[in-house]
């Protein structure tokens, strides 16, 4: 955004700022053909691709949701009230994420840092809930290898969990960078891009929560 437009560099001389070039995407880049940031465009393109990944996993679960191999189905042991709470936690982490970006954009580094940490913590709570859910399922006889339904369930939610975990690592990296004083208005695009990823992981869960958990299997 601001990043792209700082200079129309395609025909200017190199102005390499030794202090923060490299990390600072936004700085001194040349105007792109569309005027859009390369990195942000790349993230959106990547998210488009991710739709096909999660779509495949979700379809696999839907196809197999009732194929229990004569054993307990995952759907039989869903704990909807519990999952509702953890879904709500993840949903609210999207709010804290967007507030973090908003604070960084306004130059309020400390507020931004706090919201980043809050987002990571909410994400961690969600992951903790997922670990609890998995162990509870295994205790009730629904393991990864029990049936096509259970394999599909653990694979889908596991993939989502890994995405959340990667998001937490990115958020904590941002947090550390902010503590070191290297997160400011000029490079807020990094926060925005991590945010895009985070919100995407959230909307995937919005989908999963409804389609996998709430809609009853016949």
């Amino acid at each position: 955004m601001s990043a792209e437009t700082a200079t129309a560099g395609s025909v200017t001389t190199s102005t390499v700022d030794a202090d923060n070039h490299g990390e600072d995407h936004g700085h001194a880049s040349h105007a792109t053909s569309t005027g859009l940031s390369n990195t942000k465009l790349a993230m959106w393109v990547f998210l488009g691709s991710e739709c096909l990944l999660f779509g495949g996993l979700i379809s696999t679960y839907l196809l197999y949701s009732t194929r229990g191999n004569g054993r307990t189905l995952p759907a039989d042991v869903f704990d909807i009230p519990f999952t509702s709470v953890s879904s709500f936690v993840l949903l609210m982490s999207s709010l804290t994420m967007v507030l973090a970006l908003s604070a960084v954009n306004r130059g309020e580094a400390e507020a931004g840092r706090a919201w980043l940490l809050a987002t990571a913590l909410l994400g961690a709570v969600f992951l903790g809930g997922q670990v609890y859910e998995f162990t509870a399922f295994v205790r009730e006889g629904v393991g990864f290898t029990t049936s096509p339904a259970s394999s599909a369930f653990f694979t889908l939610t596991g993939f989502h969990g890994v995405h959340v975990a990667i998001g937490i690592v990115m958020l904590m990296s941002l947090f550390i960078r902010s503590v070191n004083g290297n997160l400011n208005q000029r490079n807020s695009e990094t926060v925005e891009i991590v945010g895009l990823y985070w919100h995407f992981v959230d909307i995937v869960w919005i989908f999963i929560f409804t389609v996998i958990y709430l809609i009853p299997v016949n």
Partner: peptide, 10 residues
């Protein structure tokens, strides 16, 4: 986002 200018330039 902060300082936003359209690709004008120099």
């Amino acid at each position: 986002m902060s300082d936003t200018t359209t690709p004008t330039a120099a």
